[in-house]
């Protein structure tokens, strides 16, 4: 079953456009949603959650169209938006008491167990929590109302490596029983290399690829060779840079002849993102 099915999402702004954004997330998996700043990650997420009006396309969550079943579906979606704070001078206790009233499946026992597990003190104010603890608090709220889909917008940005790894492990545990699915937007690609099952890559408002993580990385080759070798592959390269040793460039695996003597390696997610960003720069 699909936890999320996005089809041909379109949204036009004066200076930016989401073009035919489509991707699917299977239930019980973590999907990393990557792209540079301003690539359209948050706009896509806000379109999915019906927070902005889309010009075209359809969003189905857990098999239902969000435009028609928004309230019902929001009971099953949990959020953590890194960087947005709400009522920071209120105590966790006060905020939880207000929030829980909105959810029919709220479970106080689950909430208590997550507070203990995440070492959250209910009497603290939101402003007193570290960035990582804030994400954990959002997770505790989401999981206590039985969210089946977690939409996390940059949840690990601004966290130190220890806190990041800790959160990533939590995400992996959450999807273990196959009930919960996670859409996780980030520009910290190393996080996804550790925990994502699928990768959706957005660049300049368009989905470049949405695939299983290893398959996605394997579908590219990072080439390095001399300047003379560059000429052989130049027209197929997504982008390249020239350095004192020759060149390095990104190419679709299907456009590369493995028998060639150019050195080829599987790129990291970060390298794929960087070379795509260079491609856009080259066209500006």
């Amino acid at each position: 079953m699909l936890a999320m099915d996005i089809r041909n999402l379109n949204k036009k702004y004066p200076n930016f456009e989401l073009k035919d954004v489509s991707f699917q997330l299977e239930k019980g998996y973590i999907m990393g949603f990557i792209g540079a700043n301003g690539a359209g990650k948050t706009t896509t997420i806000k379109s999915i959650l019906n927070m902005i009006h889309i010009d075209g396309g359809e969003v189905h969550i857990l098999g239902k169209n969000i435009a028609e079943h928004e309230i019902e579906l929001k009971q099953e979606i949990g959020y953590a938006f890194g960087g947005s704070d709400f009522y920071t001078r209120s105590k966790l206790k006060t905020l939880t008491d207000v929030v829980k009233k909105f959810y029919t499946n709220w479970n106080d026992e689950t909430y208590r167990s997550y507070l203990r597990r995440f070492k959250l003190d209910e009497n603290k104010k939101i402003a007193e929590l570290s960035t990582g603890m804030k994400v954990k608090y959002s997770l505790a709220l989401a999981l206590s109302h039985g969210a089946k889909l977690l939409v996390l917008d940059e949840p690990t940005s601004g966290l130190d490596p220890v806190a990041r790894v800790d959160l990533l492990e939590i995400f992996q545990e959450l999807v273990l029983d196959g009930e919960i699915s996670i859409l996780f937007s980030t520009h910290i690609t190393s996080d996804l290399e550790k925990c994502a099952d699928f990768i959706t890559f957005i660049d300049n408002g368009q989905i470049i690829a949405s695939a299983e993580k290893h398959g996605f990385m394997e579908s590219y080759r990072l080439l390095s060779g001399s300047e003379s070798q560059l000429e052989q592959v130049k027209e197929h390269l997504i982008s390249y840079k020239i350095n004192s040793f020759g060149f390095t460039g990104l190419i679709h695996a299907k456009d590369f002849d493995p028998s060639s003597d150019i050195k080829a390696a599987t790129p990291s997610l970060e390298e794929i993102m960087i070379y795509y960003a260079k491609k856009v720069d080259a066209h500006v």
Partner: peptide, 14 residues
């Protein structure tokens, strides 16, 4: 200042 609008829209309310 408390970002009430986003906070509220994320809840299951019309």
């Amino acid at each position: 200042s408390q970002n009430d609008l986003i906070f509220t829209t994320m809840m299951p309310v019309t």
